[in-house]
Design a protein around this nucleic acid. Structure first.
Length: 588
DNA sequence: GTATGTACTTCGC
DNA sequence: CTCCGACTGATTCGG
DNA sequence: CCGAATCAGTCGGAGGCGAAGTACATAC
């Protein structure tokens, strides 16, 4: 099949915002290849903007910057022009499309661009590594570019950027697959819950038809999509929603899905996966070891949180600590020693050949308790079943003083299965910073702006914000701010900020981070965050807590304008430092 | 030619 | 991780 | 009673911080 067929479908999808229409177009596309299982599988992955399921992680190693270079090289349009188009449109697809239309040389000989060729080329790019690989990747792209229409180039470029921007993701594809093969969405979803590889599910549908879905089983060694939470900002609301429920500590660490099974040749095997299904087995040999000792059954899949701790006191430490472990390949032994962790399990999805995901939550907890001997490093999450808001509030306060982010309420009804994603209000989180009365907001001066991308193209995607340092009379960067703006606010940025735009960094501004545009500090905004972190890049209170580090805000979001405040009335660096020192969990 | 620094990407929250 | 917006399907309102 | 208005839920896509690895450029 020609890639143009896909590109055509994509552009029709882009024209609408109606999900029903998008699904219809996808069904039409899938139907054309429903008997070619290999091709269907590839098209499904491409439509997800991927080449493989998450847990196999075939990544291109190319994103915006390298793609821009590649587009420039492939089209002969100068890097400067390409860069300008990028800032202007905020979309690599548009840049590639325009570059293609402006291509300096026309191609005399061209090979047809088939879906398979595009897929194979991308796969080839993903596998290239080592010295010279970036150039090879650009060559592969240039080769594709050579034979594509502007229209096709648009979607190939978006594959490189990792954002197809079609308005389509897993749930829509699930729906479309269900319709293509004549079943209800729920049935495909059930398979997806056990086996998060949509391309492979499509393949099975094509090969074996609907009966194939029933053969999809949970398999230790293949991670399941993690169940997520909704959120509410008051405990009475949560109890209204869930009734009597199980409140549990929400540990601030790394979500870990532990798979344990027995291999006839090597014996007991343990593998660990993150929320996005990254295999982190190699990073946590210490966890593997303690888990092997604690787990007293043959096979199981457990869900939990891996939390950094102080090895002497057992106290929980800031999230930053455990992130040193994630993805690490070098000096593992030292990292294990420097950043010890405990694991708190809260769910059991599979135990000795039995799938538990459709059993009620309370039953799964019982199973969990039955298969784990707790130790000084392996625990079952702290919980309290109640429908009393006051008791829940006490529990919440206790969770904070024990070093957690807050609590999660989980339904204990008979219908409380483990479901991928965050649908159905089965689990609801409640964090300290959701409480509006806890007024941990700061007022920050705008010192810079970043060009928006996608639907923020043409305005600022984020602003660079600063505290005011009284002693030095300077403004020090403390966070970028890009969340919490509504359309009206975004539309007003230009008239609010353009008059303060300056060519160079203003004299009173201290920032290591370089925005696309500088602003004279004039406008002040109220900002909320979850906590303050030690930052290698922001200059607020640089060196005050730790040499070489400033302070930054975790999960920053816009709350409102502070038109009553001038820049010198912004939160001061000094205040920021003392807020940091007031935090329960902090690094020094 | 190796060592060091930096830009970029990916992924955890 | 936080947040916003468009669409959808269900329910309520009002002529 | 039926069409219009309203509401909650779903889904997708904007954007944040930090840490690690990789490829490449530069310094010595």
């Amino acid at each position: 099949m020609d890639y143009s067929v896909i590109a055509e479908a994509y552009s029709r999808i882009e024209e609408t915002r109606k999900r029903l229409e998008m699904t219809e177009i996808l069904v039409e596309l899938f139907s054309k290849v429903k008997d070619d299982s290999d091709l269907l599988r590839r098209i499904v992955y491409l439509t997800q903007g991927q080449l493989s399921p998450d847990y196999q992680s075939m990544v291109l190693g190319v994103a915006n910057k390298l793609a821009l270079k590649a587009i420039s090289r492939g089209s002969g349009v100068s890097p400067e022009t390409i860069e300008n188009w990028w800032i202007e449109t905020g979309d690599l697809g548009f840049v590639a499309e325009r570059a293609m239309a402006n291509k300096t040389q026309t191609s005399l000989f061209s090979e047809p661009l088939t879906v398979n060729r595009v897929f194979d080329s991308l796969m080839n790019m993903a596998m290239k590594e080592g010295s010279g690989s970036q150039k090879t990747k650009q060559d592969i792209f240039a080769n594709l570019f050579h034979d594509s229409s502007p229209h096709e180039a648009k979607y190939i470029a978006r594959m490189l950027s990792g954002k197809l921007r079609l308005g389509i993701a897993d749930m829509t594809i699930i729906d479309a697959l269900a319709q293509t093969f004549g079943t209800e969405k729920e049935r495909v979803e059930i398979a997806y819950n056990k086996y998060p590889a949509l391309g492979q599910i499509a393949y099975v549908l094509s090969e074996k038809g609907l009966d194939g879905l029933d053969e999809i089983k949970i398999d230790p060694g293949v991670p399941l999509k993690a169940m997520l939470c909704e959120r509410l900002s008051s405990l009475p609301d949560i109890i209204d929603k869930l009734g009597k429920c199980s409140f549990e500590y929400k540990y601030d660490g790394l979500r870990i899905q532990a798979h344990i099974w027995s291999d006839p040749r090597v014996g007991q095997v343990v593998e660990l996966y993150t929320r996005q299904l990254e295999n982190v087995t190699a990073q946590f040999p210490d966890v593997i070891e303690v888990l092997k000792a604690s787990f007293n059954k043959t096979e199981g899949i457990l869900d939990g949180e891996c939390v950094p701790i102080d090895i002497n006191t057992g106290q929980m430490l800031p999230f930053q600590e455990v992130s040193h472990r994630r993805g690490r390949k070098t000096e593992l032994a030292k990292a294990i020693e420097d950043y010890p962790v405990s694991v708190f399990f809260f769910d059991c999805l599979f135990l000795n050949e039995e799938e538990l995901i459709n059993l009620p939550y309370t039953t799964r907890r019982e199973k969990l308790a039955s298969c784990l001997d707790i130790s000084d490093r392996v625990f079952i999450s702290h919980s309290l079943i109640t429908d009393d808001p006051d008791k829940a509030e006490d529990f919440f306060q206790q969770s904070l003083s024990d070093g957690c982010e807050g609590i999660i309420a989980k339904s204990i009804s008979d219908d409380s299965p483990y479901k991928a994603g965050s649908r159905g209000w089965q689990w609801v989180k409640f964090k300290r910073d959701y409480k509006s009365e806890l007024d941990d907001t700061v007022d920050l001066a705008i010192i810079g702006g970043f060009a928006g991308r996608g639907r923020r193209a043409g305005t600022y995607g984020a602003l660079l914000m600063a505290t005011y340092n009284h002693e030095t009379d300077t403004f020090e960067s403390v966070t970028k701010l890009g969340s919490g703006f509504n359309d009206e606010m975004l539309a007003s940025f230009s008239s609010m900020l353009d008059e303060h735009k300056v060519k160079k960094i203003p004299v009173r501004v201290e920032s290591k981070m370089i925005p696309d545009y500088w602003f004279e500090p004039v406008v002040v905004m109220e900002v909320k965050g979850a906590e303050i972190t030690l930052s290698p890049i922001h200059t607020c209170g640089l060196d005050e807590i730790r040499k070489g580090n400033g302070l930054a805000i975790r999960f920053p979001r816009f709350i409102g304008m502070r038109e009553d405040k001038g820049p010198e009335d912004a939160t001061t660096t000094e205040e920021m430092v003392s807020l940091y020192n007031l935090q329960l969990k902090r690094l020094e």
